[in-house]
Amino acid sequence: MLVIRPITEADYPALMRCAEESGHGFTSLPVNEKLIRGKIHHSVESFAKEVSSPGTEGYLMVAEDLETGEVVGTTGIEATVGLDVPFYSYHISKVVHASRKLGVHNIVELLTFGNNYTGCSEVCTLFLRPEWREGANGRLLSKCRFLMMGEYPQRFSKTVFAEMRGVSDEEGHSPFWEWLKDHFFSIEFTHADYLVGVGHKGFIADLMPKLPIYVSLLSSEAQEVIGQVHEKTRPALRLLEKEGFTNRGYVAIFDAGPTVECDVVNIKSVYQAFHCSVEVSEHTSSHEYLISNTEFRNFRAVAGTVDVNTDRTLARISPEMADALRVVDGDTIRLIAQ
């Protein structure tokens, strides 16, 4: 059984391993000891903080195998973006170039540079090691964040978004970045991606074209990948789309990967979740749920079978699950059907 829990300082080696295995384009987890340790420390402080409205908190969690104690994945939430460090994106829009006299009517697309997600919450840093990508593990790692948001909405913004990894090859070459590099940046995608990951974003404002870019002027290779997701990120995108997330025309500034968003109240795993009182007992049930306790600092989430009564007030869970969630008889848990 996997349990999702807040990260601790002792999880540094495991998080660094996730960073090394995640590959190019995984901006939120660069291979940098100082930054990784800083993210862990910031998360520990954020979980301990009393919060009545979202600020610069960042919540990082890990997936731990209860049998071996091995950490096999990570997932995170930024309470807001853009308040301390600018958050940039491109918005795809359309303009019409027309002349009635000449009988010409052309609709062209523009990429407009901006900061429209400032103040929104971001779900990010989702990574599960390949040998664990089976069963409900991926769904648990993704949806546990929505169980947390539903239980503690005051800690998060009205709108939640996710920036999906765009198209790049195994060497980290991005067709979209290649065009930007040739005209504006003159540095490799992997270098630019790393600089953003370690927080050195000043070069973006310095070098990024300020005026809208006509998509038709880009190379054909760059045009083809706008709004397309990296093959390794497709399962994560499908999960978010099933939750109600959709693309509103925003893409990442480096690889043009899609950004998807949803208001918290419209996220399926938020509005369909329900509470039950716990009864710890051996039981027989074929109903699969994702389950969390209702703690914050000691948040725990698991996946498994639960026997829920007909009026959804009582949930019978196994002693093993109770131990993983750190609950006892009479405690309250939050559930969402898988």
Rank of each mutant, 00 (worst) to 15 (best):
L2H: 14
P6N: 04
D11N: 01
Y12S: 02
A14S: 15
R17Y: 02
G23P: 10
V31P: 01
V31Q: 00
E33P: 00
K34T: 15
G38Q: 07
I40L: 02
H41G: 00
H42C: 01
S43T: 09
S43P: 03
V44Y: 01
E45F: 05
S46W: 03
S46T: 07
F47A: 00
E50F: 07
E50I: 13
P54G: 02
P54R: 01
E57N: 04
E57L: 04
G58R: 02
Y59D: 00
Y59W: 13
L60M: 10
L60H: 11
M61E: 02
D65C: 14
V72L: 06
T74I: 03
G76L: 00
E78D: 08
E78W: 04
T80C: 06
T80N: 01
L83V: 03
L83H: 04
D84A: 05
V85Y: 02
P86V: 09
F87C: 07
F87I: 01
Y88M: 10
Y88K: 05
S93L: 09
K94S: 15
V96D: 12
V108L: 12
V108A: 09
E109L: 00
L111Q: 14
L111S: 08
F113C: 02
N115M: 14
N115H: 11
N115L: 05
Y117G: 02
Y117K: 10
G119L: 01
T125N: 12
L126Q: 09
L126W: 07
P130N: 03
E131G: 01
G135Y: 07
R139K: 11
S142F: 01
K143H: 07
G150K: 09
P153H: 03
P153D: 10
V160S: 05
V160H: 00
F161M: 02
G166D: 13
K181E: 15
I187A: 03
H191E: 15
A192S: 05
V198A: 05
V198T: 12
H200V: 04
A205R: 09
L207C: 10
L207R: 11
P209N: 03
K210V: 03
L211S: 11
V215P: 10
V215G: 03
L217F: 06
L217C: 11
S219K: 06
S220L: 12
E221L: 12
A222P: 09
Q228K: 15
H230R: 03
K232V: 08
T233E: 13
L239C: 04
L239I: 15
E241N: 08
F245W: 10
F245K: 01
Y250H: 14
A252V: 00
I253N: 07
D255G: 05
A256E: 01
G257L: 08
P258K: 04
V264Q: 13
V265Y: 05
K268D: 07
A273Q: 15
F274W: 02
H275L: 13
E279S: 15
V280P: 04
E282G: 12
T294I: 05
D307H: 11
D311M: 10
L314T: 15
S318N: 10
E320I: 09
V328I: 14
I333A: 08
R334L: 11
R334P: 03
L335C: 13
